[in-house]
């Protein structure tokens, strides 16, 4: 049985639609359309300037799967994530715990650690590029060594990872600080009366009660790390011999799409990344069910 709407209800529904329209249009134009367009392009041999695309099925993917460079880049991306995510979280958690106490200059320290987040990523990368420079770099000159920080394939990926950790610590720390302030003080007082040490309090109160925040950071950072691009792009020269061992999958996408003008292959690279991130996210959701403690 259908209920007939009164004119007032109709009007209200109309206005409702009018007001969600901007968001809906924005989402459609800026998100949904590009998503489907990318999927379509990944199945095409694309023409210049987005004209004259011809459907070629899964040929782009066949070519990519047979290309060792793609797997190497995916592995490079994973290696970067393995450095960035755990270290940035562990260090940020430690800093957050220390900066959550009453101490002199607390806000100054908080500000200092957050500053990298405010800087433009390109500027950060340029500064590190010169810090790492083999001949004139501050690091080599300070310690009187001559290490090819970003040209030696064995260590370049770590050097890039370090920049990633440094840039994101402040952001993670602020999130942790917010999480820490949610934990009621009573727990700590009770634990103190029972004679728990600071370390015991940390492991038995702070860590479990902070786990929703930790999980949120892990999830966003994993996705962030898997889509890294600017660090490799800005810090390493195109002719750097370590580049094949460091370049991320998004870097490869940039190479295909914008340097070589092959949008079809670029789209296919991105689709591989999307599927990979999906799998990782599903795994993380499973982990959440098991380890995250909800109050």
């Amino acid at each position: 049985m259908k209920k007939k709407k009164s004119p007032a209800q109709k009007k209200e529904a109309l206005w409702g639609l009018a007001f969600v329209a901007p968001t809906m249009i924005g989402l459609t134009v800026l998100n949904f359309y590009p998503v489907f367009s990318t999927i379509w392009q990944s199945l095409c041999k694309t023409g210049d300037f987005g004209k004259g695309n011809t459907f070629i099925g899964l040929k782009n993917f066949q070519k990519l799967f047979a290309d060792a460079e793609v797997w190497q880049s995916l592995w490079n991306t994973i290696k970067y994530a393995i450095i960035e995510v755990p270290f940035s979280i562990a260090i940020a958690l430690m800093l957050a715990v220390f900066l959550n106490r009453k101490m002199r200059g607390r806000s100054i320290y908080r500000t200092i650690f957050f500053i990298p987040m405010v800087c433009a990523p390109a500027a950060v990368a340029m500064v590190w590029r010169w810090l790492y420079n083999q001949q004139f770099g501050l690091i080599n000159n300070l310690f009187h060594v001559s290490v090819a920080w970003i040209s030696d394939p064995k260590i370049a990926w770590i050097s890039i990872g370090v920049i990633g950790v440094w840039s994101i610590i402040g952001y993670n720390m602020v999130l942790f600080l917010a999480g820490l302030q949610e934990i009621p003080r009573d727990f700590y007082e009770a634990a103190q009366i029972d004679g728990a040490t600071g370390l015991q309090q940390f492991w038995n109160i702070t860590v479990p009660l902070l786990s929703p925040t930790t999980f949120f950071i892990v999830q966003t950072r994993v996705i962030g790390a898997l889509t890294v691009f600017d660090l490799m792009f800005m810090v390493m020269d195109k002719m750097n011999v370590a580049l094949p061992k460091v370049q991320s999958i998004v870097y490869l996408f940039y190479q295909y799409s914008f340097t070589n003008g092959n949008k079809g292959m670029g789209a296919a690279v991105v689709m591989i990344l999307v599927v990979f991130i999906m799998i990782v996210t599903i795994l993380l959701q499973q982990v959440e069910k098991r380890f995250v403690y909800h109050n």
Partner: peptide
């Protein structure tokens, strides 16, 4: 080459 690539 590694020096040339880093510094130009």
């Amino acid at each position: 080459q590694d020096i040339v690539a880093e510094t130009g």
